[in-house]
């Protein structure tokens, strides 16, 4: 049994509970043990870096300090958390003033950053450590060519991500391995608008609409996502956005782990699928 450390991030305890449920379900099936980082805190997302650069390092760095040195890689399911944690590691190496600032502050509070674990996105871990062959083996209920587009979002692939920043491949390959039909999609790594959806909805709505509109045009039945922020923007706001732009046709927005779980024979409720604002029932009819 391989062990990893787990940093769920705030969303997975609230608006993305479905993601958390499916992550735990799927990794359980794969016999992977997750140990949650004790007393973790918010990564600061894109907000703290906007206000105070050093605080923006401190928040993710505390999580890295709390994670154990030798209990396996730190697995992060959220794109924004993944990027924040990875970026602080990058900054600590690259910028002396940041390194010294963080170490100095931590030394005053008994935190230590020796032996930071490797930060990896959940998708990255599944692709690299488990591998498609093993995933295929685990499929008991193929997705029967259900038509999907895979939407990786930004911060999984930029600026320090593990896949091609313009044309990411991992999610496509994983979905194909589950038996889904992956449609060509040029918006794979376009932005969902993230927190602009609250502050400047007119901007974010347009961004979400162009993603959904292309997905509908290429004939997708669902949009597969890897990030709770993307899911929220594409799912919860979809009604408002469709109204605003006069679009018809609802598109369920589903986490890749939920589809993995289904293919591995888990039930919809185990995977939190009923929690989607846009219902997936119709799209999933095919696979029963």
């Amino acid at each position: 049994m391989i062990a990893y450390q787990y940093y769920p991030g705030c969303s997975l305890h609230a608006s993305a509970r479905d993601y958390d449920e499916s992550v735990k379900g799927v990794l359980g099936c794969l016999e992977i043990k997750l140990e949650e980082v004790p007393d973790w805190n918010c990564c600061g997302a894109t907000i703290t870096p906007s206000l105070n650069q050093l605080q923006a390092q401190i928040l993710p760095a505390r999580n890295l300090a709390l994670a154990a040195e030798n209990k396996g890689d730190l697995i992060v399911p959220c794109n924004a958390c993944y990027m924040s944690l990875k970026k602080v590691q990058h900054n600590m190496v690259k910028y002396k003033e940041i390194r010294e600032g963080v170490i100095d502050i931590f030394s005053q509070t008994g935190l230590s950053l020796t032996g930071m674990p490797k930060v990896r996105h959940l998708l990255e871990m599944i692709m690299e450590d488990i591998g498609l062959a093993k995933v295929k083996e685990m499929v008991t209920k193929t997705l029967k060519d259900i038509k999907i587009v895979s939407y990786s979002g930004c911060q999984l692939v930029r600026p320090l991500g593990f896949d091609d920043p313009e044309d990411p491949q991992a999610l496509d390959q994983l979905m194909e391995a589950l038996g889904a039909k992956v449609l060509p999609f040029s918006q794979k790594s376009h932005c969902c608008g993230s927190s602009l959806i609250t502050t400047q909805p007119e901007l974010a709505f347009k961004m979400v609409d162009s993603i959904l509109e292309e997905a509908r045009k290429v004939g997708a039945e669902m949009v597969v996502v890897t990030c709770p922020m993307c899911q929220l923007n594409l799912d919860a706001y979809q009604g408002q956005i469709n109204n605003k732009f006069n679009r018809t046709g609802e598109l369920p927005i589903i986490y890749f782990t939920q589809l993995m779980g289904l293919a591995m024979g888990m039930s919809k409720s185990q995977l939190g699928i009923q929690r989607g604002i846009v219902s997936s029932n119709k799209a999933l009819e095919k696979i029963g």
Partner: peptide, 29 residues
């Protein structure tokens, strides 16, 4: 309705530590 809103405010246990490092960072910045 979908069970995706949390009403109990989540928080870290070691709030003192967190507040202290944030304050130190603020001062330093």
């Amino acid at each position: 309705i979908k069970g995706r809103a949390a009403f109990i405010a989540p928080k870290v246990r070691n709030q003192d530590q967190l507040q202290k490092i944030m304050k130190l960072a603020q001062e330093r910045g």
